[in-house]
Design a protein around this nucleic acid. Structure first.
Length: 358
DNA sequence: TATTCGTGGAG
DNA sequence: TCTCCAAGAAT
């Protein structure tokens, strides 16, 4: 028996997750349409990011910038600050660029088709299809990690990812219903997130259990096939936390492109594979009584593991900031665009410095 | 097609 | 402690 969209939609009507950015199946039947701005904002935040992590950021962004016009009017620095901690920071820059483009090229309204959405910054194949399906009920083939996993299992796709993507897109296009395309897309994601999970899928609760080839053979977890993952190399570096007598901390901005692009950091060395822990004081931003914090900060990025030595110096209140850097006052530190690794570095030198207090 | 992009939680 | 990985996009 082949999987049917109707069976999945019936399941979704009963088990849809309630999410802050979602218009549920009952509301949709009542004619309520989601705001494309909210759909877009949530979809970009959800790229490679868990629902749990996204929720507070989604609420904060909506509170700061209720409409795409509000977001377009904001300085990109404010957007980076609000995004700090969520990761993949080019998303924040593209988010702002996309809002600008919507205002400038589309009269303040998001384009009404997946094809047109696809041309906007930060919107790829998946996000374009997801917005078109969810916001406009366009029967676009939505293929994300959930869909890949579900369909690879249902059809026992032997091609390993990511090569199997094309094949899976064809399957998804064939399955996507002409009506309720938005509910269908969200149903697939709920199925993948709550039933057809990577480990120990709850097949007994699955609406497609009778049509799943992997389940029939009891080999669900063997799909989707994947190529072998690259190992994570080690890199080392040093960060210099300069603290002025009034508690201010010296900061600078990272280059726009590349890792943590455009985010705030404390001065430091490059992060390199052959880092020499004991010959780095020449890289300090200025001469001072630098002393090394006992334990380095360990931080794991997607493609390498970083061991970061933390060096600390106390400076007189009058100490000038080197060109391109600034002193962040204690009350401002928690509001800087600090990525998590930098929060860890500062916390290692001065516990509590990055926590918001009143 | 293969890399480069974060982060934190689960098992 | 370690591995995996979560609604991918850009280059």
């Amino acid at each position: 028996m082949s999987p049917s969209a109707d069976l999945l939609l019936d399941w979704y009507d009963r088990h849809a997750r309630r999410l802050p950015w979602r218009v549920g199946p009952a509301e949709r039947r009542a004619g309520i349409r989601p705001d494309p701005y909210r759909v877009w904002l949530s979809e970009v935040m959800l790229q490679q990011t868990t629902v749990t992590a996204v929720k507070p950021y989604f609420e904060a962004f909506l509170s700061l910038w209720p409409t795409v016009a509000d977001l377009a009017a904001a300085p990109v620095e404010d957007v980076m600050k609000a995004w700090a901690g969520l990761g993949y920071y080019s998303r924040a820059r593209n988010l702002k660029a996309c809002a600008d483009a919507v205002m400038r090229d589309h009269g303040g309204r998001f384009p009404g088709s997946a094809a047109a959405l696809r041309d906007l910054p930060g919107i790829g194949d998946y996000t374009a299809a997801a917005i078109a399906a969810i916001a406009y009920d366009e029967p676009a083939a939505v293929v994300d990690g959930n869909v890949e996993r579900v369909l690879a299992r249902v059809f026992k796709v032997e091609t390993p990812l990511p090569a199997a993507k094309k094949e899976i897109r064809v399957l998804q296009a064939r399955l996507t219903p002409a009506k309720r395309a938005g509910d269908y897309a969200q149903a697939m994601m709920d199925l993948g997130a709550t039933i057809c999970t990577p480990k120990r899928p709850a097949c007994s609760l699955c609406p497609w259990d009778q049509s799943c080839a992997a389940h029939a053979s009891g080999v669900e977890e063997a799909y989707p096939r994947r190529g072998e993952k690259a190992d994570r190399p080690e890199r080392g570096g040093a960060a210099f936390v300069a603290i002025r007598a009034d508690g201010a901390i010296l900061m600078q901005r990272r280059p726009e492109r590349g890792l943590l692009g455009g985010m705030t950091e404390v001065p430091g060395t490059a992060w390199s594979p052959g880092f020499d822990r004991d010959r780095i004081l020449a890289d300090a931003p200025f001469q001072a009584d630098w002393r090394r914090v006992t334990d380095p900060v360990i931080h794991v990025f997607t493609h390498f593991r970083l061991t970061l030595d933390i060096w600390l110096a106390d400076l007189p209140a009058a100490h000038p900031a080197p060109a391109g850097s600034w002193w962040a006052a204690p009350d401002d530190v928690p509001h800087e665009a600090l990525p998590s690794v930098m929060k860890k570095a500062i916390e290692a030198a001065r516990p509590g410095a990055t926590r918001k207090r009143k």
